[in-house]
Design a binder for these strands. Structure first.
Length: 426
DNA sequence: TCTGGGGTCCTAGGACCC
DNA sequence: TCTGGGGTCCTAGGACCC
């Protein structure tokens, strides 16, 4: 093999534009341009069609005619009762100040006439798989970052270096749009950190190319919060030190940042501000944990709502078990999460000698965890988690070779099993 | 105006072992 | 009697991301 000069790294970040809302508009084009909010419970399309059939019996309604459902049939935000947050909102709704993660009740005051659609993750996942398949057909090194985002390594892809990546980015955009009608924004830069910021520059439908020499002009004027990894807490602390932009962050000594933000995070902040990031685009990753949680319609009490809580608890355990089994994993760290009426959260977990994906075993251990928390306060949320995952087959093999006696328990498990605590809803 | 659900990673103390 | 480090695992909480 002849020596080839090392190519400069070209990393792309692709972000689907208003993904959930755009997918919904494919089904309901009649809502285009109207303020629409997505969130608050899940309603199946079948249920909606049944209701429609009842209210408008003059014709037959099938899933082929979603685009003909009259706009006045859709529920509006002001009629919504119950809790929850908005998952996303169309541009028309955002003009009223409505945005994702906002409480429904607040959104209803800002834009009472907004149409309300329930989230339909199955539908979004369907389009998610499709656009990722299209990308993989063009560029094989792709990292999954959730339903609507990916990183792509352009470096060795044909055309990936042309015009800094713009040619390949255009090709991917066109491929996705032609197949789905959906648009996306792409940023291409020397690394993931900058690419992520660049993909936001020209939304929607934009392509932004950032070269190493563009750091000062394009990146340094941005607020620190634009760095993926600087959240509200870190941003507030930075501001308290008079640091608002990435450029101001870059002008601080590395040692000063380490002193105030810790060895690891401080050094990382310094690297980030100087546009340094060597993380590779990772094409495969194994899950670490799986969980299910639910927020109740009203806060529940462990004693007074014992039956209801017990049923929810069992269901969560069954759902996690089903998720594990479906994906072929077992885990040995079983945990619970509670959120009290004052919004404070606590977690408890316990590690078993053997990994499991069995609903009864999960419920048994999660029940032990429940005995270790305060159950006198009303509960707003309950969750069940299984961590320390391994592939189901691998676990079986290792157990076999290590000859662990069946029924072995960790000391912590044995201790908590002996604990005499009052039975509440478990 | 009260604030979803699913994740990952980091920190820090204590247990336990060598 | 007082006093070592280092490594790993477990547990709880919190920041952050999509």
């Amino acid at each position: 093999m002849p020596d080839t000069p090392a190519l400069p790294r070209r990393i792309a970040h692709l972000d689907m534009d208003a993904f959930y809302a755009s997918v919904e508009l494919l089904r309901y084009p009649q809502l285009k341009g109207l303020p629409v909010v997505i969130g608050g419970g899940r309603r199946r399309v079948d249920d909606m069609l049944a209701q429609l059939q009842q209210e408008r019996p003059e014709r037959e309604w099938t899933s082929d005619q979603l685009g003909e459902i009259p706009v006045d049939f859709f529920p509006v935000l002001k009629d919504y009762t119950g809790r929850g947050v908005i998952t996303t909102a169309t541009y028309a709704a955002r003009q009223f100040g409505v945005g994702s993660a906002m409480g429904m009740m607040k959104a209803a005051r800002l834009c009472p006439q907004a149409l309300l659609l329930p989230v339909d993750f199955d539908e979004y996942r369907k389009y998610s798989r499709q656009f990722k398949r299209l990308i993989l057909d063009i560029a094989p090194v792709m990292e999954d970052r959730g339903v609507d985002e990916v990183y792509i390594d352009f470096t060795h892809v044909p055309g990936g270096q042309r015009e800094g990546g713009r040619v390949l980015a255009r090709l991917i955009q066109k491929s996705i749009f032609d197949a789905t009608g959906l648009t996306c924004s792409i940023g291409v830069a020397p690394n993931k950190l900058i690419a992520k910021m660049a993909s936001e520059f020209n939304k929607p439908g934009g392509i932004s190319i950032v070269q190493p020499e563009d750091l000062q002009t394009l990146i340094w004027p941005l607020p620190c919060r634009k760095i993926n990894g600087v959240g509200p807490k870190a941003d507030e602390k930075l501001q308290q030190h008079g640091i608002r932009t990435i450029g101001e962050l870059a002008s601080r000594e590395r040692d000063w940042l380490v002193e105030h933000f810790g060895k690891s995070y401080g050094a990382w902040l310094h690297d980030a501000a100087w546009g340094r990031d060597e993380r590779p685009v990772v094409t495969e990753s194994a899950p670490v944990s799986m969980s299910r949680e639910t927020t109740f319609e009203r806060d529940l009490h462990a004693v007074r709502d014992k039956a209801e809580l017990g049923a929810v608890f069992t269901r969560l355990c069954e759902q996690v078990a089903a998720d594990l089994q479906r994906k072929g994993y077992v885990g040995k760290t079983i945990g619970i999460k509670l959120r009290y009426d004052n919004f404070k959260s606590v977690t408890r977990d316990q590690t078993l000698a053997h990994p499991t994906a069995d609903a009864q075993a999960i419920r048994q251990t999660a029940g032990q965890c429940l005995k270790r928390v305060d159950l006198t306060r009303r509960l707003r949320l309950l969750g069940v988690r299984v961590g320390a995952l391994v592939k189901a087959g691998d676990a079986a093999n290792r157990e076999e070779s290590r000859k662990i006696p069946p029924g072995a328990v960790t000391p912590a498990f044995a201790a908590s099993s002996r604990a005499e605590t009052p039975q509440l809803f478990d």
